[in-house]
């Protein structure tokens, strides 16, 4: 690539570079970076000792634990369900396949508050699912399972949509060759298919986990929001704001921001691994 070797060309052919880059940077700085800087400044103002007192309080620790546990459950579900959906949508033909594929985008398009409202009503004692689950002694609403359910719903598309294109690129001839050589379907999957889609699958799981950690709208409806039991970190930050405890809100928000940025980096690394992997196997 000659362009990479010489990042600044002597003369740009296409116009509008200054205008477009200027607009982009202005928007990014004003809308995204300065507000984030305000949060970081607030964190610096709190000071390490008070910051630690806030985030290590019993209520905050419980909120982080609940958020991480529920996000792990949600991600585990989507890791399996997303893989199943990607596999079925790429490798099988059946009536209604296009519709099933479109359904995978519903959680992105549907506002989270609407999803939360609907799931809460579905699983409460007189809802379609609650009518069955409640007598069986499985309360979902107002438990950590409800939180995990809301997180799982809102992060459904991530695993499916990252695995799907990789699976589409994978030559079925490889699997047929393995079959001809006497491999069982399970062996074909674990030895041939899974290694090829592993980086993309992990990247999808990482983004699903990150999204679950930050989810708020769907959860406030279903969680019951009991401190120490069903109160997630984002909600605790929100409650601190309503109490005008801006330090408390900022400290919790900063921890969540830290998680989000680490996961963004991990997912970027996984995605570039996936891209290299794809080129190598294609």
């Amino acid at each position: 690539m000659t362009a990479a070797a010489a990042p600044f060309r002597a003369k740009r052919v296409l116009p509008g570079f200054t205008l477009s880059l200027g607009t982009t940077l202005l928007y990014m700085v004003l809308i995204v970076l300065i507000p984030i800087a305000a949060l970081i400044l607030k964190g610096a103002e709190i000071g390490p000792a008070r910051f630690w007192t806030i985030v290590s309080s019993d209520r905050a620790v419980a909120a982080f634990r609940i958020t991480l546990t529920a996000a792990a459950i949600a991600t585990a579900f989507n890791a399996v369900y997303g893989l199943l959906m990607a596999w079925v949508l790429v490798r099988h033909d059946f009536p209604g396949k296009r519709l099933l594929d479109a359904m995978m985008d519903v959680p992105f398009a549907l506002p989270t508050a609407v999803a939360g409202l609907s799931l809460t009503a579905l699983f409460s004692a007189n809802g379609w699912f609650g009518q069955v689950l409640h007598p069986a002694g499985i309360p979902v609403v107002y438990t950590i399972w409800g939180i995990a359910l809301a997180m799982a719903f809102t992060s459904i598309p991530f695993v499916v949509r990252t695995v799907q294109p990789v699976l589409e690129d994978l030559d079925p001839a490889l699997e047929q060759a393995a079959e001809t050589l006497g491999a069982t379907p399970w062996q074909v999957f674990t030895r041939v298919v899974f290694p090829a889609i592993l980086p993309a699958w992990l990247a999808g799981c990482t983004t699903a986990f990150a999204r679950s950690l930050g989810e708020f709208g769907a959860i406030v409806f279903i969680a019951g929001n009991l401190p120490g039991q069903t109160e997630i970190a984002a909600l605790l930050a929100y409650i601190r704001l309503e109490e005008f405890d801006y330090n408390g809100a900022a400290a919790i928000a900063l921890v969540l921001l830290g998680f989000a940025l680490v996961l963004l980096i991990v997912s970027n690394i996984l995605q570039s691994w996936a891209a290299r992997h794809r080129r190598a196997t294609a």
Partner: peptide, 15 residues
């Protein structure tokens, strides 16, 4: 995309 909207809201309130 990776930042919780709640955090975005808090950022704006702090600004």
């Amino acid at each position: 995309f990776s930042i919780s909207p709640i955090i975005a809201g808090i950022c704006y309130l702090l600004l």
